[in-house]
């Protein structure tokens, strides 16, 4: 086969490969080509973090506004201390909002939902959520129900 034809075909092959990888990156993993948005940090303490994991989403009214950076144990209170990165564009979360751990669907991943309060003050960088609601534990709920409490 002529050298030229081979070159063109192999070139097409490489383009197909690169296009496939782009597709995997953009369409399948939903990687946005824009630079990651700058964020500020909030803290929330939970009695039970359940299956919450780093990189899980943080949403308000169903819209993703940030993600979880890390989860550690607070040695004094024995609570889970969750570090949340919230997008800079969302800078007016009322100070009395609460962080609630929810599950997407029946069996899906857990995430934090911020249920909005009514305070005029808003949370700033480094603040902690005043009220939180821990993960719903199906097992515990059933046993509570069974023992009639």
């Amino acid at each position: 086969m002529a050298q030229r034809t081979t070159e063109v075909i192999v070139g097409l092959f490489m383009i197909v490969g690169i296009a496939a990888m782009m597709f995997l990156a953009l369409q399948v993993s939903g990687l946005a080509p824009k630079a990651p948005e700058s964020s500020y940090t909030l803290y929330a303490n939970f009695n039970d973090a359940g299956n919450l994991a780093p990189r899980a989403k943080v949403s308000m009214a169903g819209v993703t506004v940030g993600k979880i950076r890390e989860i550690t144990l607070n040695r004094e209170t024995f609570q889970a201390r969750v570090v949340i990165d919230v997008n800079r564009s969302v800078d007016n979360i009322p100070a009395d909002s609460s962080a609630v751990i929810r599950t997407s669907g029946l069996l899906g991943e857990q995430y934090i939902d911020i249920s909005v309060g009514g305070d005029m003050e808003s949370l700033g960088d480094g603040d902690t959520f005043y009220s939180t609601q821990s993960a719903m534990n199906l097992e515990r709920m059933i046993s509570n129900f069974a023992s009639g409490q």
Binding site: M21, L24, A25, Q27, V28, S29, G30, L31, R55, K57, E109
Partner: peptide, 16 residues
Amino acid sequence: NMQSSVSFTNDVLNGV
């Protein structure tokens, strides 16, 4: 669903 659960670094890059 796909986009929210497939992560670029963890899934796509590791696959590559």
